[in-house]
Nucleic acid binder design. Structure first.
Lengths: 195, 195
DNA sequence: GTCTATAATCAGATAGAC
DNA sequence: GTCTATCTGATTATAGAC
């Protein structure tokens, strides 16, 4: 038998409490600080409970990521329905807390196949929905797919916002103000002044 | 006294051997795998030697980063002297091994002040030298700083290359080919066909 | 100046009690 | 179905030997 040990039900209250604790720990001290003992301490539960609700630490990381990713998809869906989806995405992409968690998960995923696949899966879904919504904005602004394919617009915007936030967290600033200005000038051209 | 313990000299042979081992370990299994024992094992030395040459693991990480960063500055300086600095930077920025180490250091730096400052310091130096070199390329191509400030060109190029490489490592591909095409079309306009 | 023996702590995991 | 007592091994760090 592969897994003779029993496991707690997916919607037990303490399971969610543990994920909450793990998330805060990861944000405050990085993924390496997410150990069964520390998670339990933060959740005010016994360390062994982590192993009751999750087969191992990897499964906990996976649960953390999936919960965040699903919530994010809903937030993005609302943003894309707004009258100014590009402005909404731009603000969405420059949120510092999200960026910090993102870089932790990326580093973790570098060496964990299952998590890597999960991140790729969700990231493609985010991009797919962005692309669909943005296509019509570009069309309305008279920018054809030959000049700028919608998916490229999303790759560029994602890249720039992510790197700016990340560098900002590092304490860097060279070129940031000028880049913000250029991006926002372009957004104004496409969607007008932000609401 | 803050540090009564003795420490190995900075250019002892085994010190470099330990940094080599740590770097390979970080690349292969992530920063969390860089423990004194594993580093020593890979270097074929005793674990306690790590603590002889470095005050703690943080100092080892710092030494790793600094050595890489200095070497990278020299590589970049050569790239910037080439007849096509933008093409050279573009290739430079899309190297997968560099990208993997970069994301490990970023995640580490999220929670270590000294490393964070060191990364910011070097990153600003990289950008500064890029900006100086690229300014004349843009000028020659008739693109004034009002249209595209050189530093913004570098922020954009860095961002896009980094995210593309990172997503590629994740197994993502949506929008990549199209983005590559657009970037390289632009580079051709500025510097002509790559050598 | 270089390295080792050893301490003190913390990690993940599981069998078994309620 | 929920939780605990406990094992086994890894990790950092230091005092002291060569």
């Amino acid at each position: 038998m592969v897994s003779p040990r029993r496991i707690g039900s997916p919607d037990a209250k303490n399971r969610a409490v543990l994920i909450d604790a793990a998330e805060r720990l990861m944000l405050e001290h990085g993924y390496a600080a997410v150990t069964s003992r520390r998670v339990a301490e933060k959740a005010e539960l016994k360390p062994q409970l982590v192993h009751y609700y999750f087969r191992g630490m990897d499964e906990l990381f996976m649960a953390m990521f999936r919960r965040r990713a699903e919530a994010g998809l809903e937030v993005q869906a609302r943003a894309l329905k707004s009258p100014q989806p590009l402005w909404a995405l731009w603000r969405f992409g420059t949120d510092p807390a999200d960026a910090a968690l993102w870089s932790e998960f990326i580093a973790l995923a570098n060496h964990r196949k299952a998590l890597r696949a999960e991140i790729a899966y969700y990231a493609e879904r985010y991009r797919e929905e962005q692309t669909k919504a943005v296509a019509s904005v570009l069309e309305r602004a008279g920018i054809g797919p030959a000049e700028l394919p919608p998916v490229v617009a999303m790759v560029l915007m994602t890249s720039v916002s992510r790197v700016l936030v990340l560098e900002d967290a590092l304490g860097m600033s060279a070129g940031h103000a000028e880049t913000f200005e250029l991006v926002e000038r372009y957004l104004r051209r496409l969607e007008g002044e932000p609401a």
